[in-house]
C-alpha cells in the first residue's frame, strides 16, 4: 500500500465561520495506480490533493505514506518528503516567470542538493520525455499553454517521484493540448508512476485506472475503470 488515509478531516476556521472542506476521508492507493478524482467545484478535490501533497495539513485523521505517518512530521520533514517522493502538475502550470524552462525543471532537483552535472542530465532527459527540449532556454511567457504544461510535467517527473499529483492538468488547455498531456500521464503510469489527478473532464477521468467521485468533502464513489 502506497497511501492510506484514515478519517482525514480538514476544517477552515475564520472568526465567524467554520467550513468543513474534507470530512472523514478514508482512502487507500496502491503503488502504480492512476487515480482520477472528480466532483463539482468546492467539493474538496483540490484540498484532498493538497493534503496528499502535504502542502496543506489535515485538521484530523491519519495519513500514512508507505510506512511513514505524515501527520506527525514537522515542516522541514515534510519539505524533505515532498522533494524525495512527490511531483506536482498544476492547472495553471505554476512555472516561475523569471526562470527559463530548464531552470524551472531543475528547481525540483536543486533542493535535493544533487551535483549539477547530474541535475543537467536529468533535466535534459525529462525535457526529452515530454518533447520540450527545444524550448529549454525560453521563459514560460514565451511558450504556449500546452508547452508550459509539458514543462510542468517534466518538472514533476525529473525527481523520479513515487507519486505524481496533478491538479486539473488539462483545465487551462485546449482539446489537443489536453489530449497530449493525458497521453504523457498515461505513458508515465504505464512506466510505473503512481498518479493522482483531479479533473473536471469525465473523458480524462476515464483514462485513469480508478475514479473517485467526491461531494461536499466526502468520497462518495470509488470505482475501477475498465481499461
Amino acid at each position: 500500500m502506497l497511501i492510506e488515509l484514515s478519517h482525514i478531516q480538514r476544517l477552515y476556521r475564520s472568526d465567524e465561520v467554520q467550513t468543513t472542506a474534507l470530512q472523514d476521508i478514508d482512502l487507500q492507493i496502491e503503488t502504480g495506480e492512476f487515480v482520477a478524482i472528480m466532483g463539482p467545484s468546492g467539493c474538496g478535490k483540490s484540498t484532498l490533493l493538497n493534503i496528499l501533497g502535504t502542502i496543506d495539513r489535515p485538521t484530523g485523521g491519519s495519513y500514512r505514506f508507505g510506512t511513514q505517518e505524515l501527520t506527525a512530521m514537522n515542516e522541514a520533514e515534510l519539505a524533505k518528503f515532498r522533494r524525495e517522493h512527490l511531483g506536482y502538475v498544476f492547472q495553471s502550470f505554476n512555472l516561475i516567470d523569471e526562470l527559463t524552462i530548464e531552470e524551472n525543471i531543475e528547481l525540483a532537483l536543486i533542493y535535493r542538493e544533487m551535483p549539477k552535472s547530474e541535475r543537467r542530465e536529468r533535466v535534459a532527459h525529462a525535457m526529452d520525455h515530454v518533447g520540450i527540449a527545444h524550448r529549454a532556454r525560453h521563459y514560460p511567457s514565451q511558450l504556449s499553454g500546452g508547452q508550459q504544461q509539458r514543462a510542468a510535467i517534466a518538472r514533476a517527473i525529473v525527481g523520479q517521484p513515487s507519486l505524481i499529483l496533478a491538479d486539473e492538468p488539462t483545465g487551462n488547455l485546449d482539446t489537443d493540448n489536453g489530449a497530449q498531456v493525458m497521453d504523457i500521464l498515461q505513458r508515465l503510469n504505464d512506466e510505473g508512476a503512481t498518479i493522482i489527478m483531479v479533473t473536471h473532464s469525465p473523458s480524462h477521468a476515464d483514462l485513469a485506472r480508478r475514479r473517485i467521485d467526491m461531494l461536499d468533502g466526502q468520497v462518495v464513489v470509488s470505482v475501477r475503470n475498465a481499461i
Binding site: 519539505a79 524533505k80 515532498r82 505554476n94 528547481l107 535535493r112 518538472r155
Partner: peptide
C-alpha cells in the same frame, strides 16, 4: 514560494 515549497524547499531555504 508556494511552488518552491511544493517542490520541497524548506522555510529556511
Amino acid at each position: 514560494v508556494g511552488i518552491r515549497k511544493a517542490l520541497g524547499a524548506t522555510s529556511q531555504k
